[in-house]
Design a protein around this nucleic acid. Structure first.
Lengths: 253, 253
DNA sequence: GGCCCGAGTTGATTTCAGTCAATCGCCCGA
DNA sequence: TCGGGCGATTGACTGAAATCAACTCGGGCC
């Protein structure tokens, strides 16, 4: 039984993309099955990271793009004085490492928030396959574009004046992403700490903590540390656009 | 004389990239001259936008990438209630329009901050050339990666708790970009309004105005509306890291 | 099991930035 | 040339979030 499972895993590993449950969420979306086999050959292997384990560090040479297979990551930049800004939280199916394309070395860092499994796409191989499979090239561009758009969402979130709006948008967006993964979008178990959330949103930890409490008092959430249950998704959604912020209105400058 | 200039412009138009002064700053960086000629064939033409003129709007079908040739643009998203978040200011040599790759339509908007000249790279043609010139494909990826990194800088700026730090970083970064364009990095003439700056940084206009005044009092700047002269670049640089923000320090969550 | 540490929460206080309001002055167009 | 309007500045005030501080709780480790 045990050895049987192990053999199964090996096969799984060998035909990673074709059989991967993430399917449409990952790079292979919209790729024909023949091309999919080609893509399979570029996936070197899976790496497992423990909580806090580094996938890449600032300055590391660019070797590969990485797909989160299970678990979750955070990416962040850290300046010379040690200040951190978290750039994103990455759930299964999401690809990280695009920051290294420009200079052939990473200019940010990626770390596991929990025990995570990662697919590695060595860029040399990927580039080779991409040059032979135009559909994959387009798909790769689409994926980077998604990354750009995701960062736009982050900027919009941070641009809000009301901290409560920021947190509401964050939680709603996280819930939506879990739901797209066919996971529970109501009973979340946040993989990141309050410190991470605060940093991600540009707030103080205490503020985030207080906001969780306030949302609980309002009956929007049920909060127990990392376990967060959304009781009133409608209210949460309305809190995302609450205050009319005249500063932000369009103004041909 | 007049018709002579016109003929010259036409030739210029025809051999745009090869003769463009932007050279290394734009897409052609690191491309051989033969490939450069190939790239030239993909540049449809130049468009001129007046101040406030739209390059593309939210929902527009994806037709091309655009290079700022002269002038400057702002890109922004606008939600259903009209709230705007400015995503970036774009100077000559910079490419915009990557947001549309994911869904084949734009999910943001681009508008000229002043009279601007834009090179249009129809994506269908670009893709064709890219498939024949692998170096160009790599270069295109590098350019998108630069866009991602630029957005990281924006996020880091917005994440700062002190508004003064945000503005200092903004000004320093803008000065650096102008200098890279071989323009004056000391005597800036800001193409964007105070409203734009405020929105970009997630601040109120009044705060931005007060900060300009404060920086002037401190002897860092000389401010006259859009004309800003950096008197003490060293001080400006030090203001970029002023407050030690313990919240932001790295913290394994 | 008990201890210890760090994440998380809550409270008190401060401060900085947002808001409201008034005014200036530049630019553009009648 | 003269208004008008908007961008920009400045002031007064308010309020929300940061800061400082104390404490709780839970999990991991011995």
């Amino acid at each position: 039984m045990v050895s049987g499972a192990s053999v199964f895993d090996l096969n799984q590993l060998r035909r990673s993309c074709s059989s991967c449950a993430l399917g449409e969420l990952c790079l292979p979306a919209g790729i024909g099955s023949a091309d999919l086999d080609r893509l399979d050959t570029t996936v070197r292997d899976r790496r497992t990271l423990d909580r806090g384990g580094a996938l890449y560090r600032d300055g590391d040479p660019f070797e590969a793009l990485y797909v989160v297979r299970s678990g979750s990551l955070k990416t962040f930049v850290q300046d010379e004085s040690g200040d951190v800004q978290i750039l994103g939280f990455h759930l299964p199916g999401e690809i990280v490492g695009f920051d290294a394309l420009a200079l052939n070395r990473h200019v940010s860092q990626a770390e596991a928030l929990e025990r995570s499994s990662i697919c590695e796409l060595p860029y040399a191989r990927l580039q080779h396959v991409v040059s032979e499979v135009p559909a994959l090239q387009r798909q790769l561009m689409r994926v980077i574009s998604r990354e750009v758009i995701e960062e736009h969402r982050h900027l919009v979130m941070m641009g809000r004046q009301q901290a409560q709006e920021q947190l509401a948008i964050f939680l709603k967006s996280l819930a939506d992403r879990y739901q797209r993964l066919q996971r529970d979008g109501i009973a979340l178990s946040l993989p990141m700490s309050r410190y991470d959330i605060a940093n991600y949103l540009g707030l103080a930890v205490e503020t985030v903590s207080r906001l969780f409490s306030r949302l609980e008092e309002m009956g929007v959430l049920e909060v127990n540390r990392k376990a967060v249950r959304i009781l009133r998704a409608d209210l949460l959604a309305s809190l995302c656009h609450s205050g009319t912020t005249p500063t932000k209105r369009h103004d041909t400058g």
